[in-house]
Simulated scan of single mutants.
Amino acid sequence: MSARPTVSREEFDALFEAVRTWGRWDRADRGAWNRVTGDHVRRAVGLVRSGVVVPMALPWNTRSGPDNRKPALHHMTDLGDVEGPEPTTHKDFIAADYHGKGVTHLDALSHIAYAGLLYDGRPARENVDAAGARFGSVAALGPLVTRGVLLDLPAVLGVPWLEPGHAVRAGDVRAAEEALGVTIGEGDAVLLRSGHVRRRAELGAWDPATASAGFHVDAVPLLAERGVALLGGDGDSDVRPSPVAGVHSPVHALAVAAMGVPLLDNLDLEALAGATAEAGRYEFLLVVAPLNVPGGTGSPVNPVAVL
């Protein structure tokens, strides 16, 4: 297991101040996504060579388990047995409490507050209520299109997966860049593969809220320095147990509340790992289209990589 040094609350708060970008952009509700211009999108589209399309969403999970405490819903509402003219129809209903471990989703800037404040220093109680978010909603982000970079740590280390609790530190990010021949740049979406999905398939489910591979907080200043616009992984980006006393999801706090960086949680990166290894390159066009939910703190998504 990679070393996971503990971080005091005082040290964490100093780190939060060091990486925060409050007041930087006029469109504060878009946060770091302001970095992605038309030029970024055009360059990302230029990465498409083979036209291979790789979806990254987990299957809609309606079964309860240690990593799915609030299963998604799916049931039929019409089986074609309603009298009427042709054609008959079949209809269904889906719903999800998606901010968990069982549904692939995007975290908008209204999802995370630290010390009572959302991104840009907006008081959470004044901006999020039972009707939804008035600041930082997923509707403010819209479709996300940029260059994606896969950090495939198991491939770099020659292991099938990282064990739960394995902390990915700043040095590991730099080593992965060198080994994979890719450099994280401004406006990029960085996706961390820990091998979570493969481990679950081979060994069974566990509770990732208590034990998961992910970024240590000391990797965040490097990502901030590079100017990332989106962060995600096959976990939820945080290593657990948390290295920060009293903060369960410190990378969430730093990325969303300090840096204004939306998060992609619970991706399936196994097919992308295979496709990037076959192509011999770990950069690609990334497309994420969240649902247009005014006031929503996020959305279920099916991100797509195009190589």
Score class of each variant (00 low, 15 high):
residue 17 E to N: 01
residue 49 R to E: 09
residue 16 F to V: 03
residue 278 E to W: 14
residue 1 M to H: 12
residue 161 W to N: 13
residue 227 G to S: 02
residue 225 E to F: 03
residue 265 D to T: 08
residue 9 R to G: 14
residue 47 L to D: 14
residue 64 S to K: 10
residue 4 R to I: 04
residue 247 V to D: 02
residue 135 F to H: 03
residue 98 Y to G: 06
residue 51 G to T: 13
residue 134 R to F: 14
residue 193 R to P: 07
residue 216 H to P: 10
residue 155 A to M: 12
residue 241 P to F: 13
residue 191 L to I: 14
residue 296 G to N: 01
residue 199 R to K: 07
residue 15 L to M: 15
residue 118 L to T: 14
residue 129 D to C: 06
residue 199 R to P: 15
residue 57 A to R: 04
residue 228 V to I: 14
residue 26 D to Q: 14
residue 198 R to C: 04
residue 219 A to V: 10
residue 261 V to C: 01
residue 185 G to M: 00
residue 76 M to Y: 09
residue 287 V to S: 11
residue 233 G to P: 02
residue 201 A to T: 15
residue 234 D to W: 07
residue 84 G to R: 06
residue 288 V to K: 01
residue 8 S to T: 11
residue 240 R to C: 03
residue 294 P to A: 12
residue 52 V to S: 05
residue 41 V to E: 08
residue 189 A to C: 10
residue 111 H to V: 10
residue 97 D to A: 15
residue 230 L to T: 07
residue 59 P to F: 07
residue 2 S to I: 15
residue 286 L to G: 01
residue 127 N to K: 03
residue 17 E to T: 04
residue 3 A to V: 09
residue 40 H to K: 04
residue 107 D to K: 03
residue 288 V to G: 02
residue 246 G to P: 08
residue 299 S to Q: 05
residue 260 G to S: 15
residue 150 L to F: 08
residue 4 R to E: 02
residue 108 A to T: 06
residue 135 F to R: 05
residue 68 N to D: 06
residue 152 D to S: 15
residue 272 L to N: 00
residue 243 P to K: 09
residue 285 L to Y: 06
residue 33 W to D: 00
residue 266 N to C: 11
residue 138 V to I: 15
residue 169 R to Y: 11
residue 265 D to P: 00
residue 137 S to M: 12
residue 26 D to W: 10
residue 141 L to V: 06
residue 45 V to G: 12
residue 195 G to A: 02
residue 23 G to W: 09
residue 208 P to V: 08
residue 233 G to I: 01
residue 130 A to F: 15
residue 102 G to V: 02
residue 297 T to F: 10
residue 295 G to M: 07
residue 116 G to W: 07
residue 45 V to E: 09
residue 296 G to C: 09
residue 53 V to I: 14
residue 51 G to D: 13
residue 257 A to F: 09
residue 290 P to Y: 01
residue 247 V to A: 13
residue 188 D to G: 05
residue 178 E to F: 08
residue 87 P to C: 09
residue 138 V to L: 11
residue 87 P to G: 07
residue 283 E to L: 04
residue 155 A to L: 11
residue 246 G to S: 11
residue 186 E to I: 03
residue 291 L to N: 10
residue 202 E to A: 13
residue 275 A to F: 03
residue 181 G to E: 04
residue 4 R to H: 01
residue 232 G to S: 09
residue 49 R to A: 13
residue 260 G to K: 01
residue 140 A to L: 12
residue 245 A to C: 14
residue 239 V to S: 04
residue 144 L to H: 02
residue 175 A to L: 15
residue 209 A to Y: 02
residue 170 A to D: 08
residue 10 E to T: 07
residue 223 L to A: 15
residue 212 S to K: 05
residue 25 W to M: 10
residue 22 W to L: 02
residue 110 S to I: 15
residue 282 Y to P: 02
residue 221 P to V: 05
residue 88 T to R: 11
residue 283 E to P: 02
residue 126 E to N: 13
residue 51 G to H: 06
residue 125 R to Q: 06
residue 231 L to S: 08
residue 236 D to H: 04
residue 217 V to Y: 07
residue 185 G to W: 03
residue 202 E to S: 12
residue 177 E to W: 10
residue 89 T to V: 09
residue 290 P to T: 10
residue 154 P to T: 12
residue 144 L to E: 01
residue 91 K to A: 14
residue 8 S to M: 00
residue 221 P to T: 14
residue 1 M to K: 07
residue 65 G to Y: 06
